[in-house]
Computed example of a mutant assay.
Amino acid sequence: MHSHHITGNFDYLLQVEVADLPAYEDFHANRLADLPGVAAVTSYVTMKTLSADTT
């Protein structure tokens, strides 16, 4: 997992890698959404990686 404090409409960006969508649903419902102070979660799912950062 990578975490970033960002500007704009959102406060934080978490980049997580899970085995499949049921695993993400478990992470979202049972870990992330239950954290104190978390009012909303917006998710984006990568469909395809176009390029990889090699640095």
Rank of each mutant, 00 (worst) to 15 (best):
M1P: 06
M1V: 10
M1H: 11
M1K: 12
H2W: 07
H2M: 13
H2D: 14
S3C: 09
S3Q: 14
S3L: 09
H4P: 00
H4W: 13
H4G: 00
H5Y: 10
H5M: 10
H5N: 11
I6M: 10
I6D: 06
I6G: 08
T7V: 09
T7Q: 10
T7D: 08
T7K: 07
G8Q: 09
G8I: 05
G8E: 08
G8A: 05
G8R: 06
G8S: 08
N9P: 04
N9V: 10
N9S: 14
F10I: 05
F10H: 15
F10A: 08
D11P: 02
D11S: 08
D11H: 12
D11C: 01
D11E: 12
Y12H: 13
Y12M: 12
Y12R: 13
L13D: 01
L13Y: 04
L13I: 10
L13K: 09
L14E: 09
L14P: 00
L14R: 09
Q15A: 11
Q15G: 10
Q15T: 14
Q15L: 14
Q15H: 11
Q15Y: 06
V16R: 02
V16H: 03
V16L: 09
V16C: 05
V16A: 07
E17C: 07
E17K: 10
E17S: 15
E17P: 00
E17T: 15
E17H: 10
V18D: 02
V18H: 03
V18T: 13
V18K: 01
V18S: 02
V18Y: 00
V18W: 00
A19L: 12
A19Y: 06
A19T: 12
A19H: 09
A19M: 08
A19R: 13
D20F: 04
D20A: 03
D20Q: 02
D20Y: 01
L21M: 15
L21H: 13
L21T: 14
L21Y: 12
L21P: 01
P22N: 06
P22F: 00
P22L: 04
A23Q: 07
A23C: 05
A23Y: 03
A23S: 15
Y24A: 04
Y24S: 03
Y24Q: 01
Y24K: 05
Y24M: 03
Y24C: 06
E25A: 06
E25T: 04
D26P: 00
D26H: 14
D26G: 00
F27Y: 15
H28K: 15
H28T: 00
H28M: 01
A29P: 00
A29N: 14
A29Y: 08
A29R: 15
N30Y: 03
N30F: 03
N30L: 00
N30Q: 08
N30D: 05
R31S: 06
R31M: 08
L32S: 01
L32T: 06
L32K: 11
L32G: 01
